[in-house]
Structure formats: C-alpha cells, structure tokens
Design a binder for these strands. Structure first.
Lengths: 202, 202, 202, 202
DNA sequence: AATGAATGAGCATTCATTCAT
DNA sequence: CATGAATGAATGCTCATTCAT
C-alpha cells in the first residue's frame, strides 16, 4: 500500500499528488488511507520512514564496523551508492521532496544529522593527529553534502557508480587525514568500535 | 513588491503560500500581482531570478580572476558564504523551495550546472599533473555539494562563516591537487585565465 | 440534480449563473456538480442534452411516419407546440441561451440542421410538381425559422397553441405546394400609407 | 470608438469580451469608455442602438411606401437581405448576442416587435379577403421568424441573397393572400417513408 | 473491514469599475 | 481631457477529509 504512495509521490511530488491518485494506484479506497495513516502528511511520513529504513538497513548490512577504516569507508560508500543506483526513482526523489516540504524538512534534517554525526565520529577517531580546533562535524557536513550531490548524479544515471565511489572514497579519505593537508600527514586511526557507531545511529 | 513575495515564499514554501498572503504582505491587491507577474509561478520565478542575480552579482564583485588561484578560491568562498550569512532567510530557503518544486527544479538545476561547470574548469586548469582519467566534472559536483551543505549550515546560523570558509577552501584546494592523495602531491597550478571563467559563466 | 441547473440556467442565462448558485439550488455541494459533470460547460451541455432528448422523444412519440403527409404535419406541429407550451420556462430559454453561447452555438446549429434537413426532405418528397431549381433546403430554413418564432411566442404565453398550430400547418403546407406564386395572383390591397407605417415604426 | 466595440463584441460575444480588449482595440483608455458609456452594458447597448439605426435607416431608404405592395415587399426584402449580406459579421452576430443576454433580450424583443407590427399591418392591409379570425400578428411573427432564419443563412454566406430574397418574397406574398389553404389543395406526394426520416434524424 | 458519496474550505485567476494625477 | 494604476468582488475548480452504510 505504501508502494503506491511512494511511487506516486516520487513521480509527482508531495503537493502535486492527490490522495485520490494514491488510492487509485493502490486500488483501495480513500477512507482506507485515512484509516491507516490519518492524513496525507502522515502518509508521506510513513513513506519516508519506510524508505529510509530500507536504505539504512541495506547500507548497514553491507558494512562491518570491525573492518579497517579504509575498508569500512569503501564498503559504506559502495553500499550507499549501489542502493541509490538500484532505487533511482524512489529514494532520491522522495528525499528531495521531503527536504523542502516544510513539514518534513525536520525529519530529513534529523536523519541527515544522524549520518553527519556518524561521519563526524569516524573522522574524529580516524584522524591520528587532528589539528587542534578541527571541527569534525562541519567537515562531516561537507562530506555528506558531497556525498548527496554525487548520489544525486548517480540517481539520475549521470554518473557511474564505481567512478563516483572512488571519488567519494578519496574525498572522505582525505578528510580523514585532517583538515590541514599542507604537511605530510600519514595513515589514520584505530578502527572505530561498533558501540561508538551504534550510539551514533541509535 | 518582490520583497514581500520572497519573504513569504521563504517562510511558507511555494505551495503553502497563497497569492492572498503575498498581496496582504505587500499591501497591494491581488490583481496587481497578476498585472505585474502574470501568475504565481511567474512570480516565484521572478523572486528566484532576482535573488539569484543579487547573489551572483555580489559574489562576482568580490572576486578577481587575475588573482592567484589560491586567492581566487579564498575570495570566492568567502564572498559566497558571507552572502549566505547576510541573507539567511531569503536565499537558502528560496533555493531549497525551488529545488523541489517540479516547475523550478529545472531552473535550479541549470544554475547549479553552470557553477559546477565553472568549478570543473577551475579544477582542470588548476591541476598540474592530473591523474589520467580524472573526472573533473564529478569532482566539481561533489565539491559544490559540499559547498551547498556547508552554506546551508551557515544559513541556519549553525556554522561560523570563517570556519566554514577555511574548511571549504581546504577541501577545494585538495580537490585542486588531483584525485589521488596517496602520494606526496605538492603545489598546484598555473592561474586560471579570465577567458576560461568568462566562458563558463557566459 | 439537472433540474436545478436547468432552472437556474433558464432564469439567469449561462454566464450569469454561478456553480455556487446551482449547487445551492440543488442542495448539494459544488464538488458534487464537478464530480458528476466535470465543468460548467459540460453541465450546461448535459442540461441541453437532457432537455433536447425529452423534447425529441415527446415529439417523436406523437407522430407516425406512416400517416398521410397532412396528418403527419399536423401531428408533428401539434406535438411540437404542445411540448413548448407545457415546458415554457425550461426549453425555449435554455435553447436561446445555447444559441448564443459560443461554446454551444455549434451544438444548437447541428440540432437545427438536422431538423432543417428533415423538413427539407419532407418538402422535397411532398411536392408533386416542384418548380425547377427550387431550393428545398432554404425553404426548410425559412419554415423552421417561422416555427421557432411562433414557438417562442407560445412559450411566453403570447400565442395560443391551437391557433399557432393552424398557422404553422398552413404555412408548411403551402411550402409543400412549391415555390410558385409567379402566376396570376390578382393583386392585393390598397397601398399601405406612409403614415400607417411611420406610426408602426414609431 | 463604437466601431472597435462592435467588432470585438461581434467576434467574441458579450461575456467573452473584456473592457480591456475594447479599450485596446479602440486605442483609448478604459476610463474613456466609462466616461462615455458608463458601463459595459450601456456600451453594448450603444453598439446595438447604432447598428440597429444604421440597419433601419438603410432599409428605410430603400423602400417607398407609395409603391405597390408587391414592389414594396420586394424592395424591403432585398434591402433587408442586402444589408445583412454587406454587414455579415457585425450585425447578425451582435443581434444574436443581444438576443440571449438577458439585459438586452428586452431591447431586441422591442425592436422585433416593431417589425412584426409593421409586417402585421402590411398583411392586414394587403389581404383582400381575409379569413375571418385571421391572426395577422401571429402570421407576421412567423414570417419575420422565417426572415431572420434566412437572413442568418445569408450572413454566414450559406445562402445567396437573390435566391433568399425570392424565397422570402414568395413566402410573404402567400402570407398576404390569407391564411386559407383549407380548400382545393389536391393532396401532395407519396408518403415519406420511415427509413428516409430515420436517416434524416440519425 | 471497507467504501461510495459528500463537503467545507481554499486558491488562482479575472474583470468591471474607479481614483489620483 | 485623458490615463496609469489600483481594487473589490466573484468564479470556476480542486482537494484533503469524513459520514452513512
């Protein structure tokens, strides 16, 4: 039932989608939609939640926090982009819709914040000699922004997954090496622990 | 008159904003809005155009293409973030609205593409020994994405302009040094020529 | 539900009638009107169709094509005028509205054309020695025009049905006898005086 | 100034014509229209009056009440149809508009009444041995209706002026000869077959 | 459990009409 | 004398939402 909703929302956008259209697509009656989801907003929220969960689950399942940071990064980025690539229509579009729909900006912001937080921790624990005063969170923001932008390109078919992955991995990896970059900084850090990440995602 | 529109659109979003509300805010009557802008869509487009122009003009005025790439980068990033900082409400929000409004995604995409193209050229001309097969455009996509993300933080007041600038400058600078990062890469490139940039923006 | 529409359209005219007014009269809500009829134009069209059908059905039911032409004519004219008389408000007015509403002139014209065509055939087949070159169609046009004019009088209550019927029957019947009039009509009356006419034209 | 109004009203109809359009066409400003004519309705009324006057004047100038009835009739009909033919767009359309515009039906009705009255007098005075109880006025109504219908055909270019004139003259002339028809009409043709009629109506 | 039928509320848009200049 | 600028008031239409069944 959410399938229909997700599809139509993705294609038409939140505002341009009518409950009638969703009900028709789902081959149920409108009162059912309201019975189960209460309102259009909640329905969209449910779509968002489900797609987000699927996304997170997929990526989680592909990474192993006991790996070396380098492998971890590679696997995470690949899982991320592969998911995007495999679910072009549904995910990115829904995500974009949510981003600017006032009522959901909040939800999206929260989700993004969690990822930024995670990346931030990875950066922090992965950097051996951090510059004093390095703002890992802001760096994470930037890197996640870069990731989203590249993912968007992947989702439209304008970028190759593998190429995109290499690029992001490189970018993140350099991020891991600390903000400066002026002087020879080498190799990163002790592997992030599962618990740390679990907390970040909690 | 656009001021009112920009303000209300920024606060409420495109769809949630009624022409009545704008007319009320602008203290004029609805027919005037229609006389001058023809339709809600065109009105929003006008808002977008004006704000975009102001933004571009401001940033342009602060950079000098005859500077060294390093200075150029620094000035551009600072101008960019300062503008965002100084026009928190209006610009970023309008931009986000446009991003996901179906009718304007196109416009925004085009604008972003121009910037990506510009950055891509800068990277290309600024990199002394580019890795063979480096996809400068995708790198530009990533960097611009990072820039947007950081700018968004600045616009919400959650990030300090100067810190954000340093971070972005670093990120871009490293981008300039080529995709790898594994081996000792040093110094960048010959200054970008004015013509190259002019063409990119033309 | 169409009843309300027909009534209001008849009283106020197409343009002067608002969907609100119809909904109010029909004691339903506007969305219902749109659900069932799609648009104001379609609603008016539906009214027109229904009234037209009723009219045609009524007249059809009262005539028998196996009768002698004379009886056929008499019955048709009587059925026609009786119907008009019995549905004063609804039919003629709706018909007039449609006639000049740009969007329906077409429909009305077509309907009238069918009747003209029918009358034309009747004339053609009913005339024993047609004048060579007689334009039966144009004659039909004239007779139908006469019929409409008389019907209009009936509908306003300004003419008696039976008298009107006799007159039309006579007129049509003479039409049936051919265009002639060329030969020996022993001149008519004393010349109308200028003053008489001047007075008439006031 | 009325010229513009007449033209636009004729082309677009009363309701579909905006004062803006008229002002634009007339190359004056809207306030002028209001200064001179007070309201849209009055403006249309003025158009109607002027066109009606021109029409009446033209026809009047072509007839001479001292002629024989036959010549009078012929000249009047010819003048009438020639005028229609020469002013296709303007007159008939305006006339039709007025007919069903609620606010002008009155005016048109009055005008028509005057003509009917005139024709009625002509019939009355032109008929040597009127059937007792003949309703000349209703006959005039019918004949005028026939005249309008034929004129309409002329105005669309679907009928030839001369042919139409002959037909109307004949019809009127027979009208002049009285209502009779009861006697001595040696029945007409073979009964129309059902199929023929069915086809006509199909 | 499921829905057909119904609606209140709102929105973009237009137009006849009028001041202030 | 003429008008540019402005508006109050409607109007057609849509949509999220809810009863009655």
């Amino acid at each position: 039932m959410l399938d229909a909703a997700v599809e139509i929302f993705s294609v038409n956008g939140y505002h341009e989608t009518s409950m009638d259209a969703i009900a028709a697509k789902a081959q149920i009656s409108k009162p059912m939609l309201y019975l189960y989801y209460g309102s259009k907003e909640e329905l969209f929220g449910a779509c968002l939640d489900r797609e987000l969960s699927r996304f997170v689950d997929e990526v989680r399942s592909k990474i192993d926090f006991s790996q070396s940071p380098k492998d971890l990064l590679r696997n995470a980025v690949l899982a991320f982009l592969n998911y995007i690539d495999a679910h072009r229509a549904s995910w990115m579009v829904l995500y974009n819709q949510a981003t600017s729909s006032q009522a959901f900006a909040h939800t999206v912001r929260e989700g993004r914040e969690r990822i930024i937080d995670l990346v931030s921790r990875l950066l922090q624990s992965g950097t051996r000699h951090p510059e004093p005063g390095t703002d890992f969170e802001l760096m994470a923001v930037a890197l996640v922004g870069a990731g989203e932008a590249v993912a968007s390109r992947v989702s439209t078919g304008d970028a190759d997954v593998h190429e995109a992955a290499e690029l992001l991995i490189n970018l993140f990896w350099r991020g891991l090496k600390g903000t400066p970059a002026e002087h020879a900084d080498h190799a990163p850090a002790e592997p992030t622990t599962n618990t740390a990440v679990g907390a970040a995602e909690g």
